[in-house]
Design a binder for these strands. Structure first.
Lengths: 213, 213, 213, 213
DNA sequence: CATGAATGAGAGTTCATTCAT
DNA sequence: AATGAATGAACTCTCATTCAT
C-alpha cells in the first residue's frame, strides 16, 4: 500500500511537474506574443497574464519578474537561432558551396518568416531595456560575426573568397542580412527564393559588373 | 530719444530671444546626452534637468513633455543626417564615380564618429518608444532606401552597375552601412579610411574573386 | 465532493465579492466625509486614502480617479434624495393635503439633518468643479422644479392653489427650501417640527395677513 | 525751480497714482470676468494676466496673490450690493409699502441682470475656496437676513405682516430671492416686471387662495 | 499550487510665486 | 514700474511586486 502510495505520489508529482512545465511554456509563449506586439516597455505584466489566462500571483510563481521572463525568452530564442545555423561542407563530393550557402540563407529567411514574433523580438524590441540585455544581444551578434569571419577565412584558404579584411566584411554581411530579415517581416508578400538569391549574389559579387579578366 | 528707447527695447528683447534660444539648445544638448547614455525609458525628466542644470518647471517652459523633446531631437538629427548626404556627380569631367562614393562614405562614417551620441541615439535608442517615433524612423530609412534604389537604377543606366533587383539590394546596402556605423561607434580605435574602402569594395564587388572574363 | 469544491469556490468568490463591495463602500464613505469637510479642491487623494486607511494604489483599484469617485458620490446622493421625495395623494379619503405636505417637508428636513455630510456635499461643495458636475446638479434641480411646477398645476386644477405662474413660483419654493435646509445644517439645535410648519405656512400663505374676504 | 520740480513731481506722482489706480481697476475687472466665467479653481493667474494684458510680474505688483485679488473682488461686490439695498419708508405720505418693495425687488433683479458676472461670482463661484471666503459670504447673508428679519418685525408692529417667526421666515425669503436671481441669470429672455410681481406676490401671499374672511 | 486584492515607490506634469533685468 | 523667465513644491496616477486566503 505504501508502495502504491509512493507510486501514486511519483505519478502525481510527475504529472504535476509536467503540468508545471506546460504552464511555464504557456506563459512564455504568451509573453513572446505580447512583447513582440508591443515591445518591452509598452508591455504590462497585466497584458502577459491576460494573454496567458493566469492570475497575477501565478506569474510570479513561475518567473521572478517581468525582466526575468524577458531574459529567459531572449536566451531561448538566441539559442534557437544558433541551432538553425548550418555550416558549409567543404569535403570533396559535397554540393557546390554556392548551393549550400543558398540553402542556408533560404532556410534562415524562411524560419524568421514563419515565426515573425521571434524575429521582431530579437531584432527590434530587445533594445534599450537593460545593460544585461544589451550585452546578451551584443554577445550573440559577436558570435555570429566571429562565425562569419572564420568562414570567410576558410573560404579564402580554399581560394573561394578573394583577399579581404574578414573582420569588417563579416559585419557588413551580417548587417545586410539583418536588414533583409527586417524587410521580410514588414512586407506581406515576398518571394523568398528570389530574395535569397539576391542576397547571395550581392554578398558574393557586390553590385558591379564582374570585372573582365 | 524715443528711437533710443525703442532700440533699447528691441535690443533687450533681441537679447532675451537669443538667451531663450541658447537655453533651449542647452536643454536639447543635455537631453541628447542623457538619452544617448541611458536610452529613452531609463531617462527620467529629473536626469535631463540635472544634466542641464535647470529647475523642473523650466524644462516644461521649453518643451511640452519628455516625449516632445525626444521627438524634437529625433527630427533635428534625422535632418542633420539628411543634409550630410551628398549625391554623385555623373557629369563628364567629374571625378571618378568610385572616388566620389568613397568620399561620401568616409564623410558619413566620420560625422557619426565625431558625434557618437547622435548616432547612438538614432541607431539604438529610438526604438519601441512610440508609434510616432517608429513611423518617423521608418520614413527616414525608407527615404534613404529610395535614394539608394534610385542611384542604383541610374548606375545601371550608365552601365556602371550590373543588372540587379534594385529594391532589395538597396536594403542590403543600407543594412551593411548601418551595421558598420554601429561598429565604428563601439570600437575605440578605427581606421576610417581603411573601413571606408572595405565598405565600398564589399558593396561594389562582394566577396568573391572577380570572375575571369 | 466536486459539488463541495464548487460550493467552496462559489462561497469564496461570493465572500470576496462582498468584501470588495464593503471596501468600495468604505472608501466612498471616507471620501464623502473628506469632501464634505474640506470641499473638492482642498481634498487630496492622500486625504481620502488616509481617512479610509488604504494604500494609494488601492484607491485606484476601486475608482478611476478623484473626479470619478466624486461623481459616483454625487449620483448616489442625488438618487437618495430623489427616493425620499413623496408625492401628494389626492384620492378621496386621503389625509388632508396640508398634513401630507407637512409630513414630506418634515421628513426631508430630518433626513438632511441626520446626514449633514450628504447635504453639505450636495448643497455647497459640488460647485465649480466640473462642467459635468454643474450639469448634473442643474439637471437635478430642474427635475425638482418640474415636479414642483407640476404639483402646483395639479393643485390649481383641484382649486387648492390660487392662479399663479407655476414656473417661477416653483423656483421660489425650491429656493426657500434649499436655504432652510442649509440653515438647519448650520445651527446646532433646531425644532424641526416648528420649522416645518413655518416653511409650510410661508409657502402656502406668504407673510401677509390672510386677506379678508 | 525747486518749486517747479516739486510741482512737477507732484503732478507726476499724481498722474502716476492715477495710472496705478486705473491699472488696478483694469486687472480687477479682468479678474472678475475670468472668475465669473470659469470659477476660482479653473482660473489660472495666466488667464487673468492675459485678459488684463499685463505681464506676470505686474500682477503681483498690484495684488499679493490670486487669493487676495479674489477677496478684494468679493469685498467690492458685496459692498456694492449692500449699497443698492433700499429701506422701506413707513412715514405717512410715503408711497404704499407694496409699491416700495416692488420697486426694490425690481431694481435688485435688474442690477444683477445688468452685471451677470457680479451675480454669478457671488452666487456660484465663491464657494469652497477658503475658510475666509466662506465666512465673508456667511456674514454677508447673515446681514441680509438680519435686515430682512428686522423689517419683518417692523412690518408686524405696523400690522402689515401677520404674526410669524421672523428668524426662519427671513431665511425663506432670502432663499427664494437668491434662487430667482440665479434663474434670471441663466435664462436669456426674462420679463423682469412680471417676475418681480410674482416674487412679491409669492412672498406676501404664498401660493394659497386668500382665505375668505 | 493558485488567486487577485493590496501595496507604495516613483513617475510626469502643473502652476502660484519670485526675482533679475 | 514693468517684465517674463525661472523656480520647485505639490499633485494625481501607474504598475511591478507581495501576500493573505
Amino acid at each position: 500500500m505504501s508502495a502504491t502510495a509512493t507510486e501514486e505520489l511519483d505519478g502525481r508529482s510527475l504529472r504535476a511537474a509536467q503540468k508545471r512545465k506546460r504552464r511555464r511554456r504557456t506563459v512564455l509563449d504568451a509573453a513572446l506574443r505580447v512583447f513582440s506586439a508591443k515591445g518591452y516597455h509598452q508591455t504590462r505584466v497585466a497584458d502577459i497574464i491576460e494573454e496567458a489566462s493566469i492570475a497575477r500571483g501565478t506569474f510570479y510563481l513561475y518567473f521572478d519578474s517581468k525582466n526575468a521572463i524577458f531574459h529567459e525568452l531572449l536566451d531561448l530564442l538566441l539559442e534557437r537561432i544558433h541551432e538553425n545555423m548550418i555550416g558549409v561542407d567543404l569535403e570533396p563530393g559535397a554540393p557546390p558551396v554556392r548551393d549550400q550557402i543558398l540553402a542556408t540563407v533560404r532556410s534562415v529567411l524562411g524560419s524568421f518568416r514563419e515565426d515573425p514574433a521571434l524575429a521582431k523580438f530579437v531584432l527590434r524590441e530587445a533594445v534599450g531595456i537593460d545593460e544585461a540585455v544589451d550585452e546578451k544581444l551584443h554577445g550573440f551578434y559577436s558570435q555570429l560575426h566571429d562565425w562569419l569571419s572564420m568562414s570567410l577565412a576558410n573560404g579564402q584558404r580554399i581560394g573561394f573568397i578573394r583577399p579581404l579584411d574578414t573582420e569588417p566584411v563579416a559585419w557588413l554581411i551580417l548587417g545586410s542580412v539583418k536588414q533583409l530579415v527586417q524587410r521580410v517581416l514588414e512586407e506581406d508578400e515576398v518571394d523568398l527564393d528570389h530574395l535569397s538569391r539576391v542576397l547571395l549574389d550581392f554578398n558574393l559579387q557586390g553590385i558591379m559588373h564582374a570585372a573582365p579578366g
